[in-house]
Design a binder for these strands. Structure first.
Lengths: 191, 191
DNA sequence: AGGGCCATGTAACCTGTTACATGATTGA
DNA sequence: TCAATCATGTAACAGGTTACATGGCCCT
């Protein structure tokens, strides 16, 4: 089983959902650290069902198209918990950050262009932070509606929200430092 | 052309290399924000050559296997610079961080297990930071040997090193905060 | 004697994206 | 009336990993 399948199972331990709603939930929270496209979700749901980790049933609706709602089985519960307890060693997974890659080659850019993109980055991350803090209550309502939070169960979700906040702030701080360094037109030698 | 191909071209703007050495260079620096496997590098080098962005020649060696050294063409230079100047909007690329995903579902874990993995995470990141600071000089020598730094050209590389330092410190700080919160056995409600 | 590094590649597979196909309802 | 949202899926392709295949040198 792949990671996306475990992520889906994880959500289904809280609430039964159809593919489309699952995708919406992803976009609103998990998305910041695990991205999934709709067609991929449909694929993985199909495989999860073929392997007996979930079952599905059609739920008819009058005004909207019928939907296929997925529920986790006991085999699914077991597989999910086994995965969750078995943390990977090492913890850091390989990253692919295109912005960092471009900055790495920043020596090949004119100062003005590099500045512009660092400024753009700061603006974007700042807006992202504001939206997150503003939308905190809203996000909580969504998770609550979906039964994803109740009592101390939301511990992990709180942790991850803090993590996004902290790392985003650190990145903004870093980009500002870079701009200052460009202002001073420093030379970066090897000690 | 995909991002890995641009990353390879970027290095080749500094120095001509064979696939194997390219992989080593990746592992020692770029790896932190753009991961590449050896077989993937060979594949992309083949495609870059078929498309006229690089040329290759066999360099014979007495004691070791011959190697195929790749050099960037003017078409390659142009394509790389065009990519570098054309920054993506938005800047943030979709992330896939399995550790974060597991913490997100931390409500399904026993406190003791969650603690253990947060502690493991802190240890690992701390060791990583120490190695990076310690190995700063060594890394610089490697990059210098490969002609990847000289004068102000290494600006971007310095920036990225700082970025790794800052974000890693932030993550360690975050994990410590989480442990404290677990100690206090807080309840995380919706405001 | 055996493991690790040097060195290049191929084949099979898995994961994920984009485009295509379809069509009803709701709100501006 | 026009765009967005709801809703499910398939097909083609792109990107990336793991295993396989081969073999010599160097150090312990």
């Amino acid at each position: 089983m792949n990671t996306l399948q475990y992520a889906i199972l994880g959500i289904l331990t809280y609430v039964s959902l159809n593919g489309y709603s699952l995708k919406k939930l992803f976009d609103r929270s998990i998305n910041h650290f695990w991205h999934a496209s709709l067609s991929q979700i449909y694929k993985e749901l199909g495989e999860l069902e073929r392997n007996g980790y979930v079952t599905s049933s059609i739920q008819e609706q009058d005004d909207r198209p019928d939907k296929r709602v997925y529920a986790i089985t006991s085999a699914g519960q077991e597989a999910f918990l086994a995965w969750l307890n078995r943390f990977p060693q090492p913890y850091a997974s390989p990253k692919r950050d295109e912005f960092a890659l471009r900055i790495f080659f920043g020596g090949r850019l004119e100062n003005a262009v590099l500045r512009k993109h660092l400024e753009g980055f700061i603006e974007e991350r700042q807006r992202f932070l504001e939206e997150m803090i503003e939308g905190k209550k809203k996000a909580y309502e969504i998770l609550k509606e979906a039964n994803l939070v109740e009592g101390s169960e939301n511990r992990g979700m709180y942790f991850i929200r803090r993590r996004t906040e902290i790392t985003t702030q650190a990145l903004i701080q870093w980009a500002r430092e870079c701009l200052e360094a460009l202002d001073e037109d420093k030379q970066y030698g090897g000690e």
